[in-house]
């Protein structure tokens, strides 16, 4: 599956739970929203190899 995080793109093989993907990318569930094929998903959902995934980071500084 293709995963977009900001300007970076990652490729992952096989089926993954959203929370596993966040863990692999060292991203915190408290501060990120995962969008699968245009739909917002919760951490217990599964992502399939053909899915396009976008992760949006919520934390801002200043």
């Amino acid at each position: 599956m293709k995963v977009y995080v900001g300007s970076k793109t990652y490729n992952f093989q096989g089926r993954l739970k959203v929370e596993e993907l966040l863990h692999k990318l060292n991203l915190h569930p408290q501060s990120n929203i995962v969008i699968r094929n245009g739909e917002i998903v919760t951490e217990d959902e599964y992502l399939e190899p053909e899915d396009e995934v976008e992760i949006i980071h919520a934390i801002s500084g200043g």
């Binding site: 915190h28 501060s31 934390i59 500084g61």
Partner: peptide
């Protein structure tokens, strides 16, 4: 992100509190 806010301590505290 605001380019001038990089590395501010508030980002560290936010990560800490999310843990």
């Amino acid at each position: 992100e605001c380019p001038l806010a990089r590395g501010t301590s508030s980002l560290l505290y936010k990560r800490l509190f999310n843990e």
